[in-house]
Amino acid sequence: MLPSTQRKQRIDELAETGPGPDAGVSLAASAWRRLRRNPVFLVGASIIGAFVLLALSSPLLAQHDPALRLLEDQVSRAQNEIPPPQPGFPLGGDQYGRPFLSRLLLGSQQTLLVAVMATVIGLGGGLTLGILAGAFGGWVDTLVMRVVDVMLSVPSLLLAVSIGALFAQQTQFTVILAVAIVQVPIFGRLLRGSMLAQRASDHVLAARALGVKERSVVFRHMLPNALGPVVVQSTLSLAVAIIDAAALSFLGLGSGDTSVPEWGQMLGSAQNFFDSHPQLAFWPAGCIILVALGFTLVGESLRDALDPKNRR
């Protein structure tokens, strides 16, 4: 975990990778040109592509209802036995005798949902704060940034755990909310930084000199040009959300309803079987790591591509 000052610095650096003088469409075009040839991006994008495809098609691929204890008769608590792989059940069953492969396949849906929802909510909150601070400046800015800095000074996982623990009953939604709230200050600080840079830019001054209304200055001239770093962070944040959600589940703060499978929660419920049946943890953990890696690779290569210092 990065110390908070280092995290702030990282965010601010990212904010500075915003569009240079010849930004905008040219930036997007040249970024795309470089991305297409970047193997890191291609690997990451392939992983994400496969993951999304899997999530969408998993209802067709999964052969069994993930909630049904189809192999319950093969489970023996006393002898610590769970159903082994067998015809029709390539990965066997879990500790309740539910079909493991089907659960794993369908788990991708929930995992994608958690990642996307948490990022969207975090992004929404962060954008609101960032726009408020960056557009108005003054005491609004000071107030918003104080709150943001306090949140950033707590390690992100600890913050997510604390928020998750606040809810009386944990559901998928509370997991999403806890993970999302952690993302808010990151997006907020990021957007505020690049909004401030835009505020001081020539084209914003030129727009003001034409009498463009303040609202239009903020939303048409500042915001679209300030979004570059936020796009990068959103990709990275998808990875973080998946890992944070898994961690919450692992710590017993995940959704209590296990009939709908989710990788983090599957990993969490496998903790008691690490010694005897490591495959119960191995598969969901592997999937989580792979998908998080995919988002991270894409995010990092996006950042390189959008960094004006790397432009040719």
């Binding site: 010849d22 905008g24 040219s26 930036l27 020539d202 030129a206 000199a209 034409l210 009498g211 048409r220």
Partner: peptide, 19 residues
């Protein structure tokens, strides 16, 4: 501004909104 008073700046590239 823009109606009664207009202004043209030094650097035309950075004075235009890129997006």
């Amino acid at each position: 501004r823009g109606r009664d008073l207009g202004m043209v700046f030094q650097d035309p590239l950075s004075s235009l909104n890129p997006v």
